[in-house]
Deep mutational scan, measured.
Amino acid sequence: MDVFMKGLSKAKEGVVAAAEKTKQGVAEAAGKTKEGVLYVGSKTKEGVVHGVATVAEKTKEQVTNVGGAVVTGVTAVAQKTVEGAGSIAAATGFVKKDQLGKNEEGAPQEGILEDMPVDPDNEAYEMPSEEGYQDYEPEA
């Protein structure tokens, strides 16, 4: 019985440690998101679009440190934060509304985080759909 109880105690310690790591990862992701939003706020009209992409990228980098179902929630929060940063930029006159959601080359930025393969159960990952990809044929 002692062996059984000791095993359960060790398992509990492992769960607590994993929860603490997840909590730490979420806190880091939130900190990076805040950094990115402050970065966007300090940019001029020309830099705002690039700044919004930076927020998304920093958040995406930190999301990889967070495991399990938390990833889905962090990704949703990050996307809403990026959308909010863009709205703030438009409201303050840093950028025109028609410039939001495009990178410096004018290509749409939507789907940055949505296409990231995420499995809350950590069982399997699927690649994003290939609808947006084109076949590449090298020139002879």
Rank of each mutant, 00 (worst) to 15 (best):
G93K: 03
Q24W: 05
T22S: 10
Q134F: 08
D119F: 03
T64I: 13
K21C: 03
P128V: 03
K102E: 15
A56V: 12
A19Y: 15
A78D: 02
G106F: 09
A78E: 01
E35S: 05
P108T: 12
E139F: 12
T72W: 09
A29R: 02
S87I: 15
T81H: 04
G67L: 12
V52Y: 15
E126Y: 08
A17C: 05
E110W: 03
I112A: 03
Q79G: 04
A11G: 02
E105K: 02
D119P: 13
A89Y: 10
A29F: 15
A78Q: 03
K43E: 01
D135V: 10
D98M: 05
K6L: 07
S9F: 15
E131V: 10
K97M: 10
V71S: 06
S9Y: 13
E13I: 06
A56E: 01
Q109K: 12
E114D: 15
K43N: 02
A30M: 13
A30R: 02
V66Y: 12
K10Y: 04
E35W: 10
Y133V: 04
L113D: 13
K6H: 02
Q24R: 12
E110H: 03
S42L: 14
T44S: 11
S9H: 08
G68K: 11
E126P: 12
H50K: 07
V49R: 08
A124S: 07
Y39M: 07
S129V: 08
Y133N: 12
A30Q: 01
Y136F: 09
Y133F: 09
K23V: 05
I112K: 04
A29Q: 02
E114V: 09
P117T: 09
G7A: 04
P117Q: 13
F4S: 00
V70W: 14
M1L: 00
A91F: 13
E46D: 08
E139Y: 12
E137T: 04
E114R: 10
V52N: 01
T59N: 01
N65C: 08
A76M: 05
V40K: 01
S9Q: 10
K102P: 13
N122F: 06
K6W: 02
K43V: 14
A30L: 11
A91R: 05
V63D: 01
T92H: 03
M5T: 01
G51H: 11
K45H: 02
A18W: 15
V74F: 08
V49P: 02
A85D: 02
F4R: 00
E131D: 12
S42G: 08
K60P: 01
F94A: 06
G67S: 08
A85I: 13
A56G: 05
D2P: 01
D98H: 09
G132H: 07
D119W: 03
A124R: 13
V71C: 04
A124K: 13
Y125H: 08
V37M: 12
E139R: 08
A124M: 11
G84C: 12
P128E: 05
E35L: 06
T33R: 01
L8Q: 00
S129L: 06
K6N: 07
V55S: 01
L100Y: 09
A78P: 02
E105W: 01
V95I: 13
A90N: 13
A69T: 07
L38F: 10
G7S: 15
L113P: 10
S9R: 14
T81N: 02
K21G: 00
M5D: 00
T81Q: 02
A89G: 07
G86E: 10
Q99S: 10
K58Q: 06
Q24I: 10
K23C: 12
E46F: 06
K6M: 06
G73E: 04
A53S: 10
K60R: 08
K10P: 00
T54L: 14
S42A: 13
K12P: 00
M127D: 05
N122I: 07
D135R: 06
V48A: 04
G84S: 10
T64S: 06
S42I: 14
V48E: 00
G101P: 09
D135G: 05
L113V: 15
V118I: 04
G31H: 04
K23E: 00
Q62Y: 05
V66S: 01
G68S: 04
V118G: 13
G106R: 06
Y39S: 05
Y133C: 08
Q62R: 10
V37G: 01
E139I: 11
A85P: 03
V3E: 00
K32A: 11
E20L: 07
M127K: 11
E131A: 13
V66C: 09
K12R: 12
T59R: 01
K60S: 04
T92F: 15
G47F: 14
D119C: 12
P117G: 10
T59Q: 01
A27L: 14
G106V: 05
A78G: 06
G132R: 11
V16K: 08
E139T: 03
G73L: 13
K34C: 06
I88Q: 03
M127V: 09
A107W: 10
E126M: 09
A107T: 09
